[in-house]
Amino acid sequence: MSSLDIFTSEVTGTMVLILLGGGVVAAVNLKRSKAFAAGWVAIAFGWGFGVLTGAYIAQPSGAHLNPAVTLALAIKGDTPWGDVPLYMGSELLGAILGAVLVWVAYYSQFQATLREPDMVEMKHANPGPVHGVFFTSPEVRNGLLNFLTEVIATFVLIFAILTQGLVKDADGTIGLGRMGALITALVVVGIGLSLGGPTGYAINPARDLGPRLAHAVLPLPNKGGSDWSYAWVPVVGPLVGAAIAAGLYNLAWA
């Protein structure tokens, strides 16, 4: 598999993941949306379908879509360490592009929501009033506990991926097969419903950091801050959870 294959697959797959995942949050949270106030269950399934679609698109690269997955597969020995920066950089770029596409698709709804009087009063809020479309933040802010929540949730995701049986294609690339993509999508829905309440379940550093960067630069009126003081949690937590899951797998299951 060439570097171009990794780049194009991971950028495109992660872009679609964020477009559909961020899109369902926008649909539920933004006024003048037909899905306004549809609730947490809709968000959890929307993210699951986003993972499923992105994973099918990114089959040529093994469908990582997530630096935590890339790290775990490198620790397991399935992904060369030399490919890790390319995977992670591609995932981050795809996440930024996906967030920009959400902004384009819901431009009118962002304008309608953020120009209301109560939103004007919140223009200095940190995190900003539409942060959930782009990045996660905790319901109860406690750095250590928020970090541990992300570690636990990502451990579940990565351990499920590693133990389901990964597929090797004709050129030796190891990753999610078509059935594995479906199983992983359902695991993501389960994590969202069961473990998403405290922090919004980033479980993917690119999913959080890429859209957070987009939020910081996009011309959204009265958007508030991007909550950079919290940004380390959804980046470091998932990576630690992935490393623990991969280490345990190598110790007891490999």
Rank of each mutant, 00 (worst) to 15 (best):
P138I: 00
V102G: 05
P80A: 03
H215P: 06
Y201R: 09
A125G: 12
F49E: 08
V133R: 10
T53E: 12
A153T: 12
A99Q: 04
P211W: 11
V120D: 09
E116M: 15
L182G: 13
V217P: 10
E10Y: 01
A35Q: 07
T8H: 09
I158Y: 05
L166G: 03
A35M: 14
S2C: 03
V151G: 00
L166P: 01
L17V: 06
A181N: 03
N146V: 02
F155H: 04
S229G: 14
V84G: 00
G143H: 15
G247V: 03
A55L: 07
A72E: 05
L65C: 01
T113N: 13
S9Y: 02
A63C: 09
G190H: 02
R115I: 15
R32K: 15
Y56G: 11
N142T: 12
L145F: 14
Y106K: 09
T136C: 05
L182S: 13
A160H: 07
L220S: 10
S33L: 11
D171H: 14
R178F: 15
A42W: 14
T12E: 04
N204Q: 11
T53L: 15
L162T: 03
A153V: 09
A63E: 11
W253N: 00
P67M: 02
F45M: 09
G13I: 04
I57R: 11
M88V: 13
G50V: 02
V235M: 10
V217R: 03
A245C: 06
G94I: 00
L65V: 00
L114V: 06
V16E: 05
W253I: 08
F110A: 09
S3E: 14
K223V: 08
L86A: 00
N222I: 05
G21V: 01
K34L: 14
I174M: 05
H131Q: 15
